[in-house]
């Protein structure tokens, strides 16, 4: 496993019913360090299952998942917990803790993993991350329930950035958002990727146009396998029928 890749996946297979049916059916994928990769595909193609494997939340039935040079399959739980601190995840609905304020949400992972820091320092870091994700100070003491969808995404992103992760994962960040908010979130992902120099960003989405707009490396999944991996122009010039269909649909939507 080389160090030029943030994530390397070899022949990943996953079955939830003892091998009768495979949700992931032999995925081979290498995600370069520092890249912005978008994983796309129709619903039910295994995108979320793949994401959970990258995070070590699921164990492969067969195959290997290496993150930052470490094979997750052979890692002890305690090492896995440490490795997870290298990840920042923005969930589909931001998954903010609804009994904590925005500021407390962002401070939470810092408090959990850097207990040696004084409280004032933790607050300072949290505020900095919130400013980085474009959050206005007036929202800091609000509860997540009092925020709009876009603001929640910003707060979720600030929390994902809290521990200065090496890898940022975005799980369907634009699902259910209107076009204006979708563009805002896409720009936010791009800006964050540029600001977080050296970090790797992985976006899981079914929005092809967003993938073309932000992704330098696009991966399309189908039936638990990688159908095509390449740049947006590789997708536009592809002869694969399913890719063509997906691209045509995406362009029509536009």
């Amino acid at each position: 496993m080389t160090k030029e890749f943030a994530i390397e996946i070899k022949d990943l297979r996953k079955s939830f019913d003892g091998g009768k049916e495979f949700v992931l059916n032999g995925i081979n994928l290498s995600i370069p360090r520092g890249s912005l990769t978008v994983i796309i595909g129709y619903s039910g193609t295994g995108k979320s299952v793949l994401l959970k494997h990258m995070l070590g939340l699921l164990k492969p039935t067969y195959g290997h998942v290496c993150v930052l040079g470490k094979d997750l399959v052979s890692l002890q739980e305690s090492d896995l917990v440490k490795l997870r601190c290298s990840f920042g995840v923005l969930f589909q609905n931001a998954a903010l803790f609804d009994d904590l304020t925005v500021l407390e949400n962002v401070a939470f992972p810092i408090h959990e993993h850097r207990r040696y820091l004084p409280a004032a320092e933790i607050v300072k870091i949290a505020e900095k991350k919130l400013h980085m994700s474009g959050m206005d100070t007036k929202h800091f003491n609000k509860l997540p329930g009092e925020l709009s969808g876009g603001m929640r995404k910003r707060a979720g992103l600030a929390r994902a950035l809290a521990l200065d992760p090496d890898i940022l994962l975005y799980d369907e960040p634009t699902t259910g958002l209107d076009p204006i908010l979708t563009e805002m979130v896409d720009n936010l992902i791009l800006e964050t990727h540029q600001k977080q120099r050296g970090s790797t960003s992985i976006v899981v989405s079914h929005d092809l146009m967003a993938a073309f707009r932000i992704g330098e490396n696009v991966v399309m999944l189908d039936k638990g396998k990688v159908l095509l991996q390449g740049t947006p122009s590789d997708f536009l010039s592809s002869d694969l029928e399913l890719v063509r269909k997906f691209v045509d649909k995406g362009l029509k939507k536009r």
Binding site: L55, L57, R84, V89, A95, F97, D98, H113
Partner: peptide, 17 residues
Amino acid sequence: TMRVSEQIDALEVMGVD
């Protein structure tokens, strides 16, 4: 509610049991 709104998943990926 925490489970269905992915807050428990969020804890796990933050390295909090």
